[in-house]
Amino acid sequence: MASREEIVTGLADILNELAGVEQADVTEEKTFTDDLDVDSLSMVEVIMAAEDKFGVKIPDTEMQNLKTVGDAVSYIEANQK
């Protein structure tokens, strides 16, 4: 089980690799779209990579609700196996 901090770090790595976001910019209060400038298709790639990395299923319907990094961390934390 990954801690919140580990999940943030893991997401930062993914966001850096797939969307060119600086790791240091990835903090829980940031929104993916407005603050980190992740476009809608990159967001899908990020979500799919996060599923693999953390062993969670994030359905399309849930993806719409993940506005901030913190939202994603909370979802992953609650649903990881």
């Binding site: 809608s40 298709l41 967001m43 899908v44 790639e45 979500i47 799919m48 399309d60």
Partner: peptide, 12 residues
């Protein structure tokens, strides 16, 4: 279309 759903389905 729901672009994200189509993109995810097509790429996987």
């Amino acid at each position: 279309q729901e672009g994200q759903s189509v993109f995810r389905w097509a790429t996987t």
